[in-house]
Computed example of a mutant assay.
Amino acid sequence: MIETFRFAPSPNGHLHLGHALSALLNLDMARAVNGRVLLRIEDIDTVRCTPDLVSAMLEDLDWIGFDADPPHRRQSEHFADYADALRRLDAMGLIYKAFLTRTEIRHVVAQREAAGRPWPRDPDGAPIYPGDASLLSEKDVAARLAQEEPYALRLDMARALQMAGTLLDWQETGAGPAGESGRVTADASAWGDVILARKDTPTSYHLSVVVDDARQGISHVVRGHDLFHATSVHRLLQHLLDLPAPIYHHHRLITGPDGRKLSKSAGDTGLRDLRDAGWTPADIRARIGL
């Protein structure tokens, strides 16, 4: 079997040095084993991921020498795949409509913590979702549905873990934030009832990434270690949906002068700005340590 890697950027802003590291590391690792490297365009957000940004992204990748193998996969063309996965999970009784807004969640958390009861956080630091069943009656839920209020489709984590009924892990050839490697135990419970889709958005990152990796035959997932802990959720979904588990390799992040990882939303210097300033692809490789 040909080993297959992928680079999967979201074109909601211009690519920066962090993207260059991930793209070129995938390329180098694939070529080292005579494997393939695929490009996935994660454009679920069809409002922010504009055609102009997609074109700019492809231009930047071509400039740095990211020579992906065909075909490219655009998530916006495969919503039916994600809907099918949702239907399968729903048939297992693992999905529920969650109506609590961010404001309501903050209010619940503030009340509990004011009473001296710390509220659990997920690995990204966000409060664990409290669950509608403990806060909203069936009448409340029915009223919100009747008013066509927005909702998220969340995974019933406790029930999903009970149904999985086995200890899940993954093969890590890179390193997590604390240096984790080898066989790593998955702890999806740390995330609580994660979002799998919304009323107006047909899928989430967690759901689409496992479906896409399986559809594209990805054998090696190479990505930044900011996504290391999310792998626990991905392993659970792979198990529930009977999808293959790739080998994972989480790499270091490129950080700015203040120590935080680079971000498109923070306006960090893009590859095209560096190109305009006279940088070459060789300069990019040198800067990111490749």
Rank of each mutant, 00 (worst) to 15 (best):
D62I: 00
R73A: 02
A143R: 12
A186I: 04
R144F: 08
Q147I: 00
R144N: 02
L153R: 12
Y96L: 13
F66V: 01
D140Q: 08
L94W: 11
D69I: 00
A85S: 08
A143C: 01
D90T: 14
A197Q: 04
G182Q: 09
D124M: 12
R112S: 15
R74A: 02
A142H: 03
P70F: 03
P130Q: 11
A188N: 04
P70T: 03
A146P: 01
A158S: 13
A158E: 14
K97A: 15
G116Q: 08
D122W: 09
A110N: 11
A164R: 13
Q111A: 15
D187R: 15
S189P: 00
G93D: 08
P70S: 02
A68F: 14
R198E: 01
G176M: 09
P70Q: 06
H107E: 15
R183F: 00
A80C: 02
D84I: 03
L155D: 09
V141E: 06
G131S: 08
L136M: 12
E148S: 12
D132S: 06
Q171S: 14
A133V: 04
S189M: 12
A133T: 11
M157V: 07
I95F: 10
L155T: 05
E149W: 10
K199M: 13
A152G: 13
A197W: 08
Q147M: 04
L145G: 15
L61P: 02
S134H: 11
Q111V: 14
L153G: 10
G182P: 05
A186E: 00
L100I: 10
L153D: 05
S137H: 03
A85C: 07
L167A: 15
E180I: 04
R102S: 13
L135T: 00
A85F: 01
L196K: 03
L136H: 09
P177A: 07
K97T: 07
A158Q: 15
A175M: 09
A158W: 01
L196P: 02
W170H: 09
V108K: 13
P123K: 14
G179W: 06
D187E: 12
G179R: 06
D67L: 00
S189L: 13
Q147G: 01
R102K: 15
W191N: 01
R198M: 03
R88L: 13
T201F: 06
Q162K: 15
R106L: 14
D60S: 11
K139R: 12
M157F: 11
Y151F: 15
M157A: 09
A85T: 00
A126S: 08
A188H: 02
F79L: 07
F66Y: 07
L86D: 03
P120W: 14
L161N: 11
G165E: 10
A143W: 01
L89N: 06
E104M: 10
P202N: 03
D60Q: 04
G131C: 11
G179K: 07
A83D: 14
G165V: 07
T101W: 12
K139P: 00
A110M: 04
I64N: 05
D156F: 11
A143V: 03
W119I: 12
D200E: 06
R88T: 14
